[in-house]
Design a protein around this nucleic acid. Sequence first.
DNA 1: CGCAAAATTGAACCCAATCAATGTTCGTGG
DNA 2: CCACGAACATTGATTGGGTTCAATTTTGCG
Lengths: 238, 238
Amino acid sequence: MKPWHYFFAMRADDLALIRKLPLFVEMADTQFEHLTAAALLQRFPPHVLLIKEGEMPDFLHIVVDGSVELFATHEERETTIDIIHPLATFILAAVIRDEVYLKSARTLTDARILMLPAERVREVFGCDAAFARAVVNELAIRYRGMVRALKNEKLRNTAVRLANWILMSDQRQGGAGKVTLMCDKRTLASQLGMTPENLSRNFSLLGKHGIRNHGREIIIEDRTALMAFAQPSLLIDG
Amino acid sequence: MKPWHYFFAMRADDLALIRKLPLFVEMADTQFEHLTAAALLQRFPPHVLLIKEGEMPDFLHIVVDGSVELFATHEERETTIDIIHPLATFILAAVIRDEVYLKSARTLTDARILMLPAERVREVFGCDAAFARAVVNELAIRYRGMVRALKNEKLRNTAVRLANWILMSDQRQGGAGKVTLMCDKRTLASQLGMTPENLSRNFSLLGKHGIRNHGREIIIEDRTALMAFAQPSLLIDG
DNA sequence: CGCAAAATTGAACCCAATCAATGTTCGTGG
DNA sequence: CCACGAACATTGATTGGGTTCAATTTTGCG
């Protein structure tokens, strides 16, 4: 019987891929080797808990493949904080500060995660200026992502959030006016901060604003109407 | 007639104070001089708009004295993102990334703000490793602050947010069980993400949970009851 | 084909915002 | 020092967005 996870030694081609990440591309070879010598590249099935809020960081995680949900719980309630897509890190701030995780992480899909020992990340961060600068950039991007998320949450109602999510997704999928859901609707609802029931109602509400939805296909029939309803903003949606 | 703002040249003792900030304490003298040579230390009255979302950053701002509110607007709605207290920076991420502000800033009180030219911050950031590391620390702290704010918003109702705010304020004011409001209640309501009416109702609701409120004095009469209601968490309140 | 999970739909409820009216505080000028 | 006005604060009534609970339909999959 197979174990539920699979370890991979870092192979040359994996290393080459990682090396090209903004986070590592500028750093010195010796530091990069120090960082990756004890690294793990690990494959996970969907819905696996990777880290738990409140624990101390052991590894800096990098999503190489698949997607990862960051979420938080408190008093029986749970909320999605962010979704991480390939070639981005998560829990970088906790690793740098060497403080407890503020959120948990679970895989949404099959995923490959690169894990760098937190201790070494901090060591290299302390002595490799190029790496330190790259970390700043990554953190600044994530910080701004959080600000956007907070604005999205506090300044828009659920229907408008959905409308903007559709516009963004369409853009990411090529702008053809046809969006295909990559997950089930209850997961989408959680990402958008609403209940599945409410998501369902919002889809039918958006029927009045240029959207037709059938199963996992969302079709933008009237982009002008949708835009008018969504009022997308560069200062929220990026 | 006096102008509404007052410029100050950087004086020796101001410089010495700034130099001791975590952000600058480790950096090289020459870099520090380069950074502060063109700096401004400026005094503002309350309720002055310092920066506007959507504009490009000219200066890195550091609150030396007083407090500053970061807020965002969208479609007639407005929401407080954060309150900055002395010896902290704001809009650091925008300066580093050289991208538009995602939020506006206004003084809440009389305030002294140190302004460093954004261009020079980026220059020094690129060549002074100690400064780059300090920037990371600052950003990581702010990032985690945003995560906490998002959790506070999404996982708690308004009454519980108020209860936790009282507990935090009490702690900051010495833990004597008596909190004095530093601003009027409409400002507090906005900080906590609720209407003044709702804040008022929540104060009276907290009467059932160990709080007595009169004017600008909040007295914790039964800390146990308040804690039971607030359920404070290190993973949200810090 | 049949079952379990997901999705939709309807009804009742809850938290918080809004609207409206009243009471309070505080700064100002007489 | 008092009187007054304006902003702030409280209280009540109403509305609304969203959740919850419950029942039904659809989907996907062995």
